[in-house]
Design a binder for these strands. Structure first.
Lengths: 198, 198, 198, 198
DNA sequence: AATGAATGAGAATTCATTCAT
DNA sequence: TATGAATGAATTCTCATTCAT
């Protein structure tokens, strides 16, 4: 078993500090307009220091993305594996995703602005993105077994769920919609459930 | 009435040629990685010439966006004002948008990658984006009057329609879904209509 | 036949201007301490302009080297193919080489300082270096046929000629020896000829 | 008489360890591409520790050079002061120098690549370099007294000896000549002796 | 003494923009 | 109008050196 030395802990801490700063800067300026200097300053460090923890701007970017996506996936998996009917789970998934982005607006902006240009280095992120729809799909399949969901193309339906949720997130992120989260979830879930239930 | 001189016509023509080239290049490389040289070469012009028609790279970019959005809006308005029930119109709107992006993949990529970071200069584009949902909303309102659509928050529902459509477009743009367009439209419209009809 | 347009001529001219400046700077500071800014300034250009003519610092460096070596080789070949006995030719080769470096001190410094680290990109330069000794060797072989030169390992002897000449060049380059060129040539040729003649 | 405290001894030892590591690294990468980290790692120390023993990278470099040159000079002086005729001594000097560099290839590479650019800080190294030719010159003068060497400019001749030897060393260092050391010495000494003997 | 984290000056390279032809 | 050579600001990344522990 590898014991984490004090140094490891500090390293880890610095890294997460930098990533946090990076997330803020990237979300505000996008990948290209964000400079390492921006990130360093935002983290209260000198430029060179950032390079002690990350090999390149790309690496910081990817790490920031990966971190966020993984955190979201963890939460969604917990929802899907939790108790309740498929209906309950579906609702919870939507809630979770929205709440997550409500609290991580900057992270969402990053995802949003770069999904369009997933070059090779970004592939792992795309995979993680797909994982998300797969979680939803599994819940839908369970719903069909339960008889609560009508027989439909679960893959397509899963995307629909993800897209609708994302749409709301965009509106909230952009500040176009300020209503309570619960109202949004109600509306969208209602629409969806009518659309997919038996 | 201002008569368009021959010069104006030529100007207009050159501009649209450059924009067309720009759209291709921007969609392939994104705003930052696209160089003026790329665009000029793609338009068969010298770098300096581009600056005779546009003040800056930004301006080209915005013009390219505006152009595309306006073309889409024109088509969607035509749909909304055409004949048929709200149901027919809604279906047609979805079809139109998907077909449009199917034929203008590059343009979609541009929108997609930059909508997340609408700084002040981009505001006019956001407005155009909103227009789109307003068109949908009007159709939904008509549907309610017809009694075909249940009473619901039409603004939110309009966004839902737009988001679902966009989701499909993304999948197609990324090459994740290769099926015939009609199948996609059927699926999504079906889901939606079940969700919003009385 | 490719006709050189005026543009080609200008291009060629600029390139040679930059190379000339580069040679001066490189010889004074060495590859690493020379900055592109130095070279540009020395050529009376802006930094960016240099990059219109050369892809990288490396490329400038290699071009400067190649240029010089080729010029020297051309002169030496002319000597070797000129009239006279092997003895005459050998003397002339030495004279030529020394005179060449007397006039191209900076170039010599470059060669001198980098022969030690011929990485892959430098290989062509090494080849050119070898060509030089081969020219000498051919003259020596002719000398043996004439009966003027004793039978010896011509390859090794050629290197000896080259090394002795280079040694003198170093002394002159460093300013350690200020005497007339002719005296140096006399001394060294005398020594050599005694060493290799029958 | 200053007594060397134990501390002094340790200091001296560490310094020489670092210099040894430095020599290896410098010869492999050259002055600029060698990093203090490289040297420290190669010496099994932390970067900061190196600075306890040397003020700067420059200083390490110079010390490494000086060390090597002094070692060579010591050996050559021993040769010159040893028994035998001038002829014997001259041969031995050549042998010694070649053997020394055969065993210290890395050190030779350093000298080779930097002698071309002796700026002020390097001056002391140049002096050491000159000492070498002076040793040879003294032997030549003795040879003249013995009547074995013809009357000639001993300074120039000494440089010739040094240059020829260096030439061979280069070829061996570069791996262009793999034959036994003795053969090389024979050839060059033979040539030289014919050139300078009465 | 020893460490290695932090610093920031410095260098290569790119490219939007200008301007003389 | 059209051109494309010239410019130089801006950016990423490296590494010698310092300094708190």
């Amino acid at each position: 078993m590898t014991r984490r030395t004090k140094r490891d802990v500090v390293q880890e801490f610095r890294k997460s500090e930098i990533l946090s700063a990076a997330r803020t800067v990237f979300s505000r300026k996008g990948f290209h307009d964000a400079t390492i200097d921006d990130i360093a300053a935002s983290a209260g460090l000198a430029k060179g220091t950032v390079y002690l923890y990350f090999k390149s701007k790309q690496e910081i970017y990817l790490a920031a993305l990966r971190d966020g996506i993984e955190a979201l996936l963890r939460k969604m998996r917990a929802d899907a594996e939790g108790p309740g009917t498929a209906r309950d789970k579906l609702r919870r998934l939507i809630e979770t995703k929205m709440a997550f982005f409500d609290e991580n607006v900057d992270f969402f902006q990053i995802i949003q602005s770069e999904l369009g240009r997933l070059d090779t280095t970004m592939n792992e992120c795309r995979d993680l993105y797909f994982d998300q729809t797969r979680i939803i799909e599994d819940v839908l399949k369970a719903g069909i077994k339960e008889g609560a969901v009508r027989k439909l193309n679960t893959a397509k339906a899963a995307f629909a769920v993800a897209d609708l949720t994302k749409g709301i997130v965009i509106q909230r992120t952009m500040g176009w919609s300020k209503t309570r989260l619960k109202g949004e979830v109600d509306f969208i879930f209602n629409l969806l459930w009518k659309g997919i239930s038996t």
